[in-house]
Design a protein around this nucleic acid. Structure first.
Lengths: 281, 281
DNA sequence: TAGTGGTCTAGACCACACG
DNA sequence: GTGTGGTCTAGACCACTAC
């Protein structure tokens, strides 16, 4: 019994057309009647499960904006029909996307594309918590926002060439009337044409929400390198601390779809009334 | 035929006997023929899925030591038979345990209880990475290891009473011949009877591996509060830095099974040649 | 060859949200 | 009530590991 071609094709998952059904991967075999197996084919050069292929296809639709942040994606049944697989397979794909925080499931309602506007998600990228009281978003004061050529170090981190266009932002975040964070940010020039200090200052809410809404660039994940450093004169003045005071230095690289780096950020945090929260598991 | 009582019983999951089959929760109904539903019972006061109950039962066996760190747990089929549920349900339970890092699946071999001895897991709780070269474990020099009464602050974090017995350890970690970490550790006295400086110094490898092997206390997860602080004279001397130098302060509370806190640790890290690595997702 | 985890399917029913 | 995600089952086959 069974079966349809059984040639696995891992690579195809990425280069597949926009919304075609995935070629059935190894281990698929819908319980259909008679049919021979593939006669001569490598058993599994690079095996990729069906649900991974589905996941890649869904991710592609997220990236191209077929389903936008905040919107609902089609139901599991609809997706199963679209991709010609069982609901269970779609479910497993969505499970992983939900684990990656790309979508969020809401029982009885549907599955929604996550957005940096949501309260729940806001603090995913801001781990600074006040000693007393609830986490909050402070006021942002942009000191500078200009376009320039990427220095070597930044270019390396952004995976571009030295001298390529980047946008540099410097800003101060104020929590409870105390200057707490001094950020220096570099953004991929190509993705942020038209970003100005004015636009940044007008925006209320998380910066990543602005990037997502106005520039179609969504931050998916980031890595951070954390150190303790001494405040130099500039930082000391802007943060109203004594020169030489200990500050938390947080060097972040943020990535969008396809693990492409789009932002480098160096934050200096005053940690006398706040701390950086982390969970190990 | 079927059916057994169909009253949901969330609470029971915790207080269940050591290895009894779980009472079938709501939504179970094996596809058997005729059989009435529960006549009169609240539809779902506090609903707990079957696989969560199974997960709790497995976790219980881990806690009691029925399956010890490094050992293989029974196969999915065996567990399904033991708990009288389908393999799929056991699978989902184990999936979550694997996500929590309590067990690790190895295709073709089995599912194993994780241990702090494994290389892979060693750096789950030590996030300090050298600027150059691979992560490594340095030499540990124990300065002190004594039993004392818990100060108020420590007692609060350990969820015990002020004055209850705790073990205090102070030690220095040296990486590449440079003193890099100064730890001050408080452990629940009841769990660590017989812990001495000598035992600690003899031990090669992660401290948590010793705790797991010798004291049956396994660290499952931890929370950390990170700040930048200035080195006081004591720390400066032990870490060979100038007084007032910026240090990374990491306050950790570690938990064992049942989310019971068993360790409080305050680490001071020199971050000139190392950084604290974190991933946001 | 046997045993284990991993994938896929098909179908049933439950819990939840909303009109 | 209808639609959506969530749970559970039963059975088949695939991939990996070890004997």
């Amino acid at each position: 019994m069974s079966s349809l071609p059984t040639s696995p094709l891992a690579a195809a998952a990425n280069g597949a057309p926009e919304s075609g059904a995935p070629q059935s991967g190894a281990g698929t075999q819908p319980s259909t009647p008679a049919s021979a197996n593939t006669p001569a084919a490598a058993p599994s050069p690079t095996f990729s499960p069906l649900y991974q292929q589905i996941k890649a296809l869904i991710m592609q639709s997220l990236q191209t904006g077929e389903w936008k942040p905040g919107e609902m994606i089609p139901s599991e049944m609809d997706l199963a029909a679209r991709y010609k697989v069982s609901q269970g397979t779609v479910r497993k794909a969505i499970d992983e996307l939900a684990a990656d925080n790309l979508v969020a499931r809401r029982q009885g309602k549907g599955t929604f594309v996550t957005t940096h506007h949501e309260d729940v998600v806001k603090f995913r990228f801001l781990r600074l918590v006040p000693d007393e009281g609830e986490p909050h978003y402070g006021a942002s004061r942009v000191l500078e926002c200009k376009r320039l050529r990427a220095p070597a170090e930044i270019a390396r981190l952004l995976d571009i060439r030295t001298g390529d266009s980047v946008v540099q932002i410097r800003r101060v975040l104020t929590f409870s009337n105390e200057a707490t964070v001094l950020d220096e940010i570099w953004l991929l020039g190509a993705n942020f044409k038209g970003l100005t200090a004015e636009k940044l200052n007008e925006w209320k809410g998380p910066m990543y929400a602005l990037f997502e809404a106005e520039f179609g660039t969504r931050m998916i994940r980031a890595t951070e390198k954390i150190r303790a450093v001494a405040a130099d004169n500039t930082a000391a003045e802007l943060l109203s601390v004594a020169p030489g005071s200990p500050l938390l230095s947080v060097e972040r690289v943020s990535f969008t779809y396809g693990d492409r780096p789009v932002e480098v950020r160096r934050g200096l945090y005053v940690t006398t009334r706040h701390y950086y929260q982390n969970d190990l598991s």
